[in-house]
Design a protein around this nucleic acid. Structure first.
Lengths: 350, 350
DNA sequence: TTACAGCATTAGAGCGCTCCAACCAATAGA
DNA sequence: TCTATTGGTTGGAGCGCTCTAATGCTGTAA
């Protein structure tokens, strides 16, 4: 249970501790003979360097802290993959901690990460107040993913939610839909841009927006659909605030005897693994998640290496993934010019 | 960007560094006056202890390393919740790293965790070879979750897959099913016990097992169903190796014009959030995931505190969650004695 | 021969902390 | 009065490492 130290390796190889240190950091200024002797001794002893002692002595760190707000959401797993890829490439390790969507627990998680004095910190969709982020940013470089910030010392990586919503609406309009409702994400992260993009796109097409308040859950999606049905204002197409909401919406539609996409088209947002399931096969908006991670790690490492001090704001382009929950509207069978329908006529609300 | 040290706090509070150290570890042998002076100085300076220096000096660690084999799987998120809960309670922090289901990357993740010299290590469903685990276990206490091991120095926490499969079969049999196939998980973790439990339960009911080779993915589940349909040997009920597989199976059944549960009942395994979605509403076997985490952390901390040296094997009871994918078989309408069907008659294949 | 590069190697201080032994009142017991 | 005892406080060594400056050692030029 007791790991060998550099001293042990030095003794066994018949050299000094400093030489072992040089070998461990593969310095070029070590003779081949000594190097192999040290490596051999280290191997025999099962020695591996003590990262904390190293970091303490060198006053530097090769660790990036990553705070994942919600481990249950596979979205973040792919971002972490991207971070990991870039970090590893550049000789950095990552340590992860999770905030469980609770500000208190998140704060603890950040605190814990900071206690390891990492070179930098990446916060994935944090819910802590901006002031807490600003405070952390005084101590080390910080990058925010899926959350915007005005603090000039932190970098941000986001998707362009307005554009994503626009893509979805353009797709539905091109299929011939005129009455398209948006199930809104309320207070949720990034719900704002998506809503704005929806409204802007509808207006650009000369259509009337119809916003239904909802949330990022399947239960909320179902509830929103029932309210639409009850109020007799069900449109021919739905843009949900995310995939979970969309799946809830679909099952509520089916419960009401409506078929998707025959009677109503549904578009999600996020392209989670859920959307890709054959059983769901949801048309949705994809965010380049791994790219989020790569850019975040890249931006952080630039700061760590002090190559840059001005903040950078990455805004990535989402893309449309067409699957089986969207189709031309059934009822008003019109001109068959596939894919392109008239866009300049108002669809009356029911 | 430079954090204050204990020395700075001591200077400001007009005491020695050692006294600050005592306050930080809330030792009882500090006068109230000094304690509050130190706390005040620390607060003003924004001081927080340097975990690595502390760990180095004390030759102990209050950190538990957690290796999550696959961050994309929400299963692990709940286990982590359980670990976090117990660790936190007992004054330990956790750091997470991920292996991405690749042995090489997993090995790196473990290596990286070990370089922080944590007090112990929890491996969630690791795919590295047993020898690597044994080697790690020589250096520090190790607990395995969702993977068994014969190494006497490591503790394990698993669900009783045999019992889970039995619960599913008992449920289906009680509904009146006689022809029940198992879509097998092949080489996947825990596939063995589930298969054995299935066979044993079928035989206990005097029924003939029908095992179809498959995998832990929705695509594989769909493929297995198509092969059953093609060979004209579709049973009235299916026990899938996991929820993903079950969802794939359901969509393949629906594609073939069959209704679930009217024509075929389907049971999953794991009770992932997927199963709970209204749209899916899958009858499945639940594993007490948070409990896995709590037990794992508890077992690890016992070892860390040297309260125990003999290995412990936790085998938890899974439970049945009945939703909407199981119902009595439609075709052979027989005696209506609800819940209890004849168990001593072989169901002929087809 | 001495001098001086140039290179490989090493001693030693120090990173921020803990922990032990020593210390210093202040009080209690003799 | 003198010695113990006790509770609070502190100096200093040391955890495993890095890093600087110094050292020894060759080989070559003067």
């Amino acid at each position: 249970m007791v790991r060998p130290t550099m001293e042990d390796v030095a003794l066994r190889a018949g050299v000094s501790r400093a030489l072992v240190s040089l070998v461990m950091r593969n310095s070029p200024k070590v003779s081949e003979a000594r190097r192999s002797a040290v490596l051999k001794a280290a191997e025999e002893l099962g020695y591996s360097p003590h990262a904390m002692a190293r970091s303490l002595a060198s006053r530097t760190s090769t660790v990036l802290g990553v705070m994942v707000s919600d481990l249950h959401n596979a979205f973040f797993a792919e971002v972490v993959d991207g971070i990991d890829e870039v970090a590893r490439e550049q000789g950095f390790d990552i340590i992860i901690n999770t905030g469980g969507r609770s500000p208190a627990r998140e704060r603890r998680a950040v605190e814990s990460l900071l206690s390891f004095r990492p070179a930098g910190l990446i916060l994935l969709s944090p819910v802590v107040p901006a002031t807490a982020i600003g405070k952390a940013a005084e101590q080390l470089p910080v990058v925010l993913v899926a959350r915007s910030s005005r603090v000039s010392t932190v970098d941000t990586v986001n998707d362009d939610g307005e554009q994503g919503a626009r893509l979805a609406i353009d797709h539905l309009v091109s299929l011939g839909h005129k009455r398209i409702a948006h199930l809104d994400g309320g207070e949720g992260t990034q719900a704002g841009p998506r809503r704005r993009g929806y409204v802007a796109a509808m207006e650009a097409h000369g259509l009337a927006p119809q916003i239904v308040s909802s949330e990022y859950t399947d239960v909320a999606g179902a509830r929103a659909i029932r309210s639409l049905i009850d109020s007799d204002s069900l449109p021919t197409a739905i843009l949900s605030c995310n995939d979970f909401n969309a799946v809830g919406a679909i099952s509520a539609l089916e419960d009401a005897g409506l078929r998707v996409p025959h009677d109503v088209s549904v578009v999600g947002y996020d392209n989670t693994s859920l959307a890709a399931l054959r059983h769901v096969s949801l048309t949705t908006i994809d965010q380049p998640r791994a790219e989020f991670g790569r850019l975040a790690a890249g931006a952080l490492l630039q700061r760590v290496r002090e190559e840059r001090t001005e903040p950078v704001r990455h805004l990535l382009n989402p893309s449309l993934v067409v699957r089986n929950t969207t189709a031309p509207p059934a009822t008003p069978r019109r001109s068959r010019r596939s894919g392109e329908a008239a866009t300049n006529k108002h669809g009356g609300l029911r």
